[in-house]
Design a protein around this nucleic acid. Structure first.
Lengths: 130, 130
DNA sequence: AATTCAACTATCCTTTGGTATAGTACTTAC
DNA sequence: GTAAGTACTATACCAAAGGATAGTTGAATT
């Protein structure tokens, strides 16, 4: 027997379209995966930093995680590590040009996240407030 | 002793600016976390779907994961679950209006992911396909 | 001589995310 | 009456992610 008509709107799209969108999104998420990569990148968007400065700016991160994620980001050409042989050796991290191309990604996430936070925090002018 | 001058560019930004950006981005990533949520949302961007249709469009997902993630997304008001009591009961999933607000997020990830994929695949080679 | 700081590395352990596999309730088809 | 499809749920298991804690190297400070 025929299934009743629902308001499905998938009339004429091939499954291929869907996968073509999913794959690059997954690629993007892969390099940004984990709890700390975006925070580190954001921190470096505000300027070059040393290890302990980044650690100070990102609440909760451990040295181990910061070290590991910086290495991952460097391997993906998003972050550059520069060693200056000053009296105590100074290691500075910066975003590469490629790293800076993530700016629109971060910006759109920041904007969406901001309204989402307002939403879940119950910033409802017209409805029930709790 | 003074540390040698490096090309640090963090002259005059307060740490607060950084955290103010990190928090909303983390909020956004939280609702999109995991391997399958974005793929499911993308699939529903192409139209309302039933359980097994979504499963077919997302290679590799198991029933359990699809079921769990759909529940998560519904709890976050991104996805709507509609039950139609047709002869075999039909359950249709759709994006809510709120879910549709993720479109720019997905779009920017798709664009960045596409160029990133070209980059890591070695975009000079046009002949090789996989 | 002991302490501190910077920039890490190492080890252990717990939690979470995800997979594999199977099973359920209902109904239509053969 | 056996099979197949739909929309799931349940149980067991495993690997990766991440946290806690401690140690290292070398120079500088007290």
């Amino acid at each position: 027997m025929e299934i009743a008509e629902t308001n499905c709107s998938h009339k004429n799209h091939t499954q291929g379209d869907c996968i073509k969108s999913i794959l690059p999104v997954k690629d993007a998420l892969e390099v940004l995966s984990g709890k700390w990569k975006l925070p580190i990148i954001i921190s470096l968007m505000f300027g070059n930093k040393r290890f302990s400065q980044i650690a100070k700016e990102i609440p909760g991160i451990t040295d181990k995680m910061l070290s590991k994620e910086l290495r991952d980001l460097e391997a993906n050409c998003l972050v550059k590590r520069s060693v200056y042989d000053a009296i105590p050796v100074v290691v500075e991290y910066s975003l590469t040009d490629y790293g800076h191309t993530l700016k629109p990604v971060i910006e759109v996430l920041r904007v969406w996240g901001t309204t989402h936070r307002e939403r879940i925090m119950g910033r409802v002018e017209l409805a029930v407030q709790d």
